[in-house]
Design a protein around this nucleic acid. Structure first.
Lengths: 231, 231
DNA sequence: TATTTTTGATATGTCCTACAAAAGAACAAT
DNA sequence: ATTGTTCTTTTGTAGGACATATCAAAAATA
């Protein structure tokens, strides 16, 4: 076998610390026992004794689970299993300056994909009141489209409102978390490009048009972004 | 003011531990200094001294950052800033049995949204080879559609292949992570429903049709799922 | 001189003990 | 029955000790 393959053949040795092992064990333990949120867990000393490690190691593992929101701890009462906030952990690592360019691009595409796919759920749940509020946002744009910061703020407000109109809170939060990334990528653009289909056009479609028309409208609104994707 | 409003007026007090505070401080520190991956960090003792806490607390906070992949630690060399795996932390909390029903439903909708929105990127990147492989998967379905487990496996293979064909690794991984949730929700269905548009139909559209046709085909393929969404 | 070996220093990983602080539980006082 | 007190348990924090891995420099060798 050629030596060039060596690095791919040999798997990286990652010294797992006790805390890593305990973390996995605890997560498995919580899964298998099919605990429900609110159920009490053994205390730190018991866990340490059962696992044969020091309380210190157990605490490091628990610290991670606490961060994920999987467990809560209260003095005297001990630990309780709780519902993790699935997006919370995501939020912590979403910094455009840390994420590599490929992943940033992937996330940008993810966002485009979502906006195009939103039409169906949007038409299922949109209310007259929502459309009116959206229209107001679209109108604000016209008033003062000169300043860059305002323009971006308005852009965010408009698209954010659309996500909110889907009635899907997770989706909305997700979009909200992606904003810094989106903003970062847009800030790299030198000249702001305005699509053929404006925000106002989209509002009018929402008022009178079909969801297919809305999807096509959104596609054209985002067209210049699609144009720049790598083949 | 009526006493009944009391619980809604008073906000919950959440005692933050030192580890929580240090975690935030460290993340801010990494952000503000605009470190690059690979840059060395102060050691635990120095951090503890600077922050005025014990090494124990610092280690608990670092343990969290290590889990997120934001820092790596090696003996003697100390700590290095590294690129977090943005989906890694997500993965840890994605257990259908822990997530509440509303969020599960939200995620299900998210997946539907993605699949409908995929068409554009898919048509940008699909290759002949990919389509052929997809066709093979679709053909396998017909052979043995009796067994339930096989049917689900094939379903996963087909849709997974489509995500892979987008050339967006993050998207593919994301979909992969959502599979347990999707499987869980599908398993709740009593009777398997086959859409008007089959996998083979979708393959044929990919071969000869436009991306609009594909999007419409996917919509119809998933129609029975859309039908069940709450208004 | 160049290369290998040995040695030493250093930072993390783990364990231990101790104590402060919070909070439930039991009991006493009003 | 409500309020206040005390007790006890469990987490949160501190600090010390030592093993272990690993880098760096000194020493030994060719």
């Amino acid at each position: 076998m050629p030596l060039t393959n060596l690095s791919s053949e040999l798997k990286r040795i990652d010294q797992k610390t006790m805390a890593d092992v305990v973390e996995v064990q605890l997560r498995d333990y919580l899964k298998k026992k099919s605990f429900k949120p609110g159920d009490p867990l053994p205390n730190e000393m018991q866990l340490a004794a059962s696992l044969g490690v020091s309380r210190n190691v157990v605490r490091e593992a628990l610290s991670r689970l606490r961060m994920l929101g999987m467990v809560e701890t209260k003095k005297k009462r001990g630990m309780l299993l709780s519902r993790p906030d699935i997006l919370g952990s995501f939020e912590r690592v979403l910094d455009p300056l840390i994420i590599d360019d490929t992943t940033l691009q992937d996330i940008f595409e993810l966002r485009l994909t979502l906006e195009v796919g939103l039409a169906d759920i949007l038409y299922l749940r949109k209310t007259k009141k929502d459309v009116e509020e959206l229209e107001q946002i679209a109108k604000n744009q016209k008033v003062d489209s000169g300043k860059l910061t305002f323009r971006i703020k308005n852009e965010i407000a408009f698209h954010g409102k659309i996500y909110q109109m889907t009635g899907n809170d997770t989706l909305k939060r997700f979009q909200n978390m992606l904003l810094p990334i989106f903003g970062y990528l847009v800030s790299l653009e030198k000249v702001p490009i305005i699509g053929k289909v404006t925000h106002m056009d989209l509002v009018n479609i929402l008022k009178n048009g079909t969801k297919e028309e809305f999807r096509q409208g959104m596609l054209q609104h985002l067209q210049h972004h699609f144009d720049k994707l790598r083949k």
